[in-house]
């Protein structure tokens, strides 16, 4: 069975083609050029303009025709409404035109499953950090339960917005990571509430701090503080859930320093640490295709009229039928 998955919850548009055995035949991503934050309508236009060529390229890359595809999957949520709707329309159109079944799947769960597929992690605690999401989840009795998450903005959003305020460029993550090298520590607020996090106060404080301290120092301290908070929450969740593996997911997880910190924490606990390859860490189509395959194989079906998007869709609302 071959599934074509379309991702488009935010500024990235992705098309992935995956086989039932978990072989990724194609995984192409088109990034919307960003000068500032994501405007939902502009991102949706970007997706609408690029979906057709991206689909063609992905099929060519996979070396198959659309007639060899058995299933269409798309990111149904959570995400930006206008973006989700463009992707849903594309998926439904393909399904109708080529008479294929279509499945809308959860974006956050897709990150977890592609991580498990590509790293062979079996039952990990997942640390998922991206521009829009920050969650620590683990599988318990039929669901990916949320053990820790941000109470306000996402980690990636905190860093991106900081970079924007200081006019460092976009996306902020890699820029701040580079500038942080050679910085030294200045104090910033560290906010952990139980197993949850709060990044909005840190963002405000970092922007303010940049008026008196060097940019390198604030970038360094922002990363160190924000990441230490996330690693601490992961550590607590690890002790709580007694899982023996840690998996990272999401665009922010590409950050070398964050990976290093999580790896060190895992070593201290004798826990295995898994980092998926870069091209499946951030938002991508292959993860949607793979979750589509898993869902379909475990009996999930959706009628066309039931494929409406879900902008707010909690990870722990998804019934995990395939495990």
């Amino acid at each position: 069975m071959i599934c074509l998955g379309i991702e488009g919850t935010a500024e990235k548009l992705g098309v992935g083609i995956v086989t039932g055995d978990g072989e990724i035949l194609a995984n192409l991503t088109k990034h919307m050029p960003l000068k500032e934050g994501i405007h939902p309508r502009e991102a949706a236009q970007h997706h609408a303009q690029n979906i057709k060529p991206l689909l063609e390229k992905a099929l060519a890359k996979a070396g198959i025709g659309i007639d060899e595809v058995d299933l269409i999957a798309f990111s149904r949520g959570p995400g930006l409404g206008p973006c989700l709707r463009v992707v849903a329309v594309a998926a439904r159109t393909l399904a109708l035109k080529y008479r294929l079944p279509v499945l809308g799947v959860n974006h956050c769960v897709a990150h977890i499953e592609i991580g498990r597929l590509t790293t062979n992690a079996e039952d990990p605690l997942t640390v998922y950090a991206s521009g829009g999401n920050t969650q620590v989840t683990a599988y318990v009795e039929g669901r990916y339960r949320v053990f820790g998450e941000t109470l306000d903005i996402a980690l990636g959003n905190c860093i991106d917005q900081f970079a924007r305020e200081l006019k460092l460029g976009a996306p902020g993550g890699p820029i701040v990571e580079k500038l942080a090298r050679g910085g030294s520590y200045v104090e910033l607020p560290y906010v952990v509430k139980g197993m949850d996090l709060s990044y909005s106060g840190l963002l405000t404080a970092a922007v303010k701090k940049a008026k008196e301290a060097s940019v390198a120092d604030v970038c360094f301290s922002l990363q160190e503080t924000a990441f230490a908070m996330l690693v601490e929450v992961a550590e607590r969740a690890l002790a709580h859930t007694e899982k023996e593996e840690v998996l990272i997911a999401g665009g922010v997880a590409v950050n070398k320093r964050l990976q290093e910190m999580l790896r060190t924490m895992c070593e201290e606990h004798g826990t295995a640490f898994y980092a998926p390859p870069r091209d499946v860490l951030g938002d991508n189509g292959a993860m949607i295709a793979w979750l589509g395959l898993l869902s379909y194989a475990s009996g999930a079906r959706q009628r066309l009229e039931d494929t409406h998007v879900i902008q707010r869709w909690r990870t722990d609302e998804v019934e995990v039928l395939w495990r």
Partner: peptide, 16 residues
């Protein structure tokens, strides 16, 4: 309020 929220969420994940 945050203190209570932490409790409520932990019940949700642990004692579902």
């Amino acid at each position: 309020g945050t203190d209570l929220l932490v409790f409520r969420k932990s019940v949700r994940s642990t004692h579902y």
